[in-house]
């Protein structure tokens, strides 16, 4: 109880206490939302599975065993085996690493890029805004998967190129959001105040504008994770993402497609994994929005 009071204190005595208190309040609000908690559990599960994949997976994800082709789910193979006799569960477990790699890399590339472009457009206004937003609109007007396809076609198939392709199509949304957010406070008095103190444009954007756009961007990124996973899977499905024999989920569905009627588990199991993880990110993102987005605060 003492620590709770210390954390919830309205009069924090150090930077540390203030920061921890804020984090505590946020997490408390998050834990009060059961769906967000489900999402969080799924995401943590994904992280753990990816981290310990070699130890968790009962079989090798790559070595084939043609004597055990297309076995239905059983005690030995919980999710059955595929056309080369590989254990599907092991492949899904190892595939989580690829999924996580794609998702994180896309987020790390596209969110800061979008944030920077959006805040610059909103902060400077005028022709900078017109040029940057024109660019954003061009990217935004093209369907994501088609764009990604075009990029992969140009760069050649492979995970790295898929990541670059997805990242290039993902940032415009963040730029739009960041710009809209920036516009709401660009004429606020605290912005005039910081300008009057002689701060450079770069400093104002990075230290004063971005922190205010950060939470809505984080929320949006989390909500977009599902879409990123699906795009990555789509690329894999079309044979333009991860290349065989890598256990990428989309590619697994693609190869299972041939047996969908007789050996349903081959395509269904990775599909199931995609749905669960996407759902996890969506639920968590929704919860995060309720907690972080000031517009929803009453």
């Amino acid at each position: 109880m003492m620590t709770v009071n210390w954390l919830m204190s309205d009069a924090p005595e150090t930077r540390w206490q203030a920061g921890l208190g804020q984090a505590y309040r946020t997490s408390r609000a998050l834990f009060a939302n059961p769906l967000a908690l489900v999402g969080l559990v799924i995401i943590l599960g994904l992280l753990l599975v990816a981290a310990f994949a070699p130890w968790i997976a009962p079989y090798s994800p790559i070595e084939s065993d043609l004597s055990a082709r297309l076995l239905p789910p059983s005690a030995a193979h919980w999710m059955g085996t595929d056309e080369l006799g590989r254990d599907i569960m092991s492949r899904i477990i190892h595939g989580s690493r690829i999924t996580l790699y794609i998702v994180l890399l896309v987020a790390v590339i596209s969110a800061p890029l979008g944030l920077l472009i959006g805040t610059m457009a909103g902060y400077f206004g005028g022709w900078v805004d017109r040029v940057l937003m024109g660019l954003t609109d061009i990217f935004l007007s093209m369907p994501r998967l088609i764009m990604a396809l075009a990029f992969v076609a140009a760069l050649g198939p492979g995970i790295e190129n898929a990541v670059i392709a997805i990242a290039i199509t993902a940032w415009p949304v963040y730029a739009r959001i960041a710009r809209a957010e920036t516009l709401t406070f660009r004429n606020a008095e605290f912005m005039s105040a910081i300008r009057m103190q002689g701060a450079s444009h770069a400093r104002i954007i990075v230290r004063h504008v971005m922190p205010l756009c950060l939470s809505s961007t984080i929320v949006r990124v989390t909500l977009d994770m599902a879409g990123i996973i699906l795009t990555a899977a789509g690329l894999g499905f079309l044979g333009l993402g991860a290349q065989p024999p890598m256990p990428e989920w989309g590619a697994m569905i693609s190869s299972g497609r041939a047996f969908i009627l007789d050996q349903w588990w081959v395509a269904t199991m990775p599909g199931f994994a995609i749905v669960v993880v996407s759902l996890g990110f969506c639920l968590f993102g929704d919860g995060l929005r309720d907690v972080l987005d000031p517009r929803n605060r009453t």
């Binding site: 606020a188 008095e189 605290f190 922190p211 205010l212």
Partner: peptide
């Protein structure tokens, strides 16, 4: 409006 809402 004159103080940055996220800064102590």
């Amino acid at each position: 409006g004159s103080l940055h809402p996220r800064k102590s």
